[in-house]
């Protein structure tokens, strides 16, 4: 079987990435999207009954052949280093461990969402989610 899979993240920018959006953590605390820290995601996942945080290392970033404002980001996910590719708008933000929001085109992210953002690079470790093993 193929060792990689492809996931398409929503192709329009969701409203919750706009600066000032109110995000509810798993313990009920409310924070603005631009104020979220790595610990907020980790602690929320610890409380969650079915979700766990996985480390997704950026292995490759390339332009999409379908449209110039899309990028294909290839991740190595979790301890099994499963290869996952996602096609996203270049301004789509990912949360990098210990760093914060990052996108393929931070200038566009800041312009469209006013979300402070750095450049997503190969080697960055992003926060992603998988289902907990329910045994």
């Amino acid at each position: 079987p193929p060792s990689s899979s492809s996931t398409v993240v929503p192709t329009s920018l969701p409203p919750y990435f706009i600066k000032g959006s109110i995000i509810q953590l798993a313990d009920g605390e409310l924070k603005r999207v631009e104020d979220l820290k790595t610990e907020d995601f980790i602690q929320s996942a610890e409380i969650s009954s079915d979700l766990k945080i996985d480390s997704s290392t950026v292995e490759r970033i390339e332009g999409s052949i379908s449209a110039s404002n899309f990028a294909v980001v290839q991740f190595s996910v979790g301890e099994h280093r499963a290869q996952v590719s996602v096609e996203v708008l270049v301004e789509y933000p990912f949360f990098v461990f210990g760093q914060g929001w990052s996108s393929c085109c931070p200038d566009r992210t800041t312009q469209l969402l006013e979300l402070p953002c750095t450049k997503l690079s190969v080697g960055d470790v992003c926060i992603s989610l998988t289902l907990k093993n329910l045994r």
Binding site: P1, Y16, I22, A26, L30, S56, V77, T130
Partner: peptide, 25 residues
């Protein structure tokens, strides 16, 4: 009386891409 519009609140996990790797075992 006009009720004030509530501000939308989004769950934390909607901000994180859900990457489900293929399982080989």
């Amino acid at each position: 009386n006009v009720e004030p519009r509530s501000v939308p609140v989004f769950p934390w996990h909607s901000l994180v891409p859900f990457l489900a790797p293929t399982q080989s075992d």
